[in-house]
């Protein structure tokens, strides 16, 4: 459904994503892992159509990322991005105006569960509240693909549970969820595949069950092997 072929992005002399080829299928929840600078965010931004590749391709259902993919793909960045004159209500209206799969009802439900109110001004939000608002408006869409970049960052434990719940609720056999996070342990039970990126390269994609059954390792164990000091890869 979502596929990158030798996808590369360079910023001047710096390579953010280096010939990464990944093929993602619906009906799965993928955890994209790696320290800062490994290429997760840039890969996601290319999938979301915000960044144009330097070389290689990124395809949605076989066609290059563009207007059609943006209709089906819900991307949530790590950074805040709402217009600063907006209230939470305005943000919802904006999404409703541009995305046919947005449900205002679900939005209000999520706002409530995250303990946010529609009259809150985006410029007055703390970083935690902003993180919750971003998630609420993104998950209020009934998209085919969700690309969530660090959705659990800066969020308190209870709200994190709510977010995990809405992530699971939004999953389905025709849906693809890609979540990147530093909080590897939080994703252990909900991800069925782990994608490891290191220094702009793809290290491996592995089914979490395979790690456990064949190697007796958790995702966190494998993470430490790959990125820890003394890790061969």
């Amino acid at each position: 459904m979502l596929e990158s072929r030798e996808l590369t992005k360079k910023y001047g002399s710096k390579t953010a994503v280096d010939h990464v080829s990944i093929s993602l299928e619906p009906g799965h929840i993928y955890a994209m892992l790696g320290p800062n600078g490994s290429g997760k965010t840039t890969w996601m931004k290319m999938a979301g159509g915000l960044v144009k590749p330097t070389s290689g391709e990124i395809l949605y259902n076989g066609a290059p990322i563009g207007i059609n993919s943006k209709r089906d793909i819900a991307y949530m960045s790590t950074e805040p991005y709402f217009y600063n004159w907006m209230t939470a209500k305005d943000v919802g209206k904006y999404y409703q105006d541009f995305f046919a799969d947005f449900s205002m009802e679900r939005y209000h439900e999520l706002l409530e569960r995250m303990e946010l109110t529609p009259d809150l001004k985006t410029k007055a939000l703390s970083s935690g509240m902003m993180a919750k608002l971003k998630i609420a408006v993104t998950m209020a869409r009934d998209a085919r693909v969700y690309l969530l970049d660090e959705p659990l960052n800066g969020i308190d434990l209870l709200a994190r549970d709510e977010i995990m719940r809405s992530i699971l609720q939004s999953s389905g056999s025709d849906k693809l969820l890609l979540i990147s996070s530093h909080l590897v342990e939080e994703l252990e039970t909900i991800a069925d595949y782990a994608i490891f990126l290191k220094q702009s390269h793809l290290i491996e994609i592995v089914a979490t069950d395979t790690l456990r059954e064949e190697q007796g390792k958790s995702v966190a164990d494998r993470y430490r092997e790959i990125y820890g000091h003394g890790g061969e890869n």
Binding site: E79, Y81, Y83, Y94
Partner: peptide
């Protein structure tokens, strides 16, 4: 600025 995401994630050319 990051506000660019607002425009660029919408399905518009």
């Amino acid at each position: 600025t990051k506000q660019s995401y607002m425009l660029f994630m919408t399905p518009h050319s």
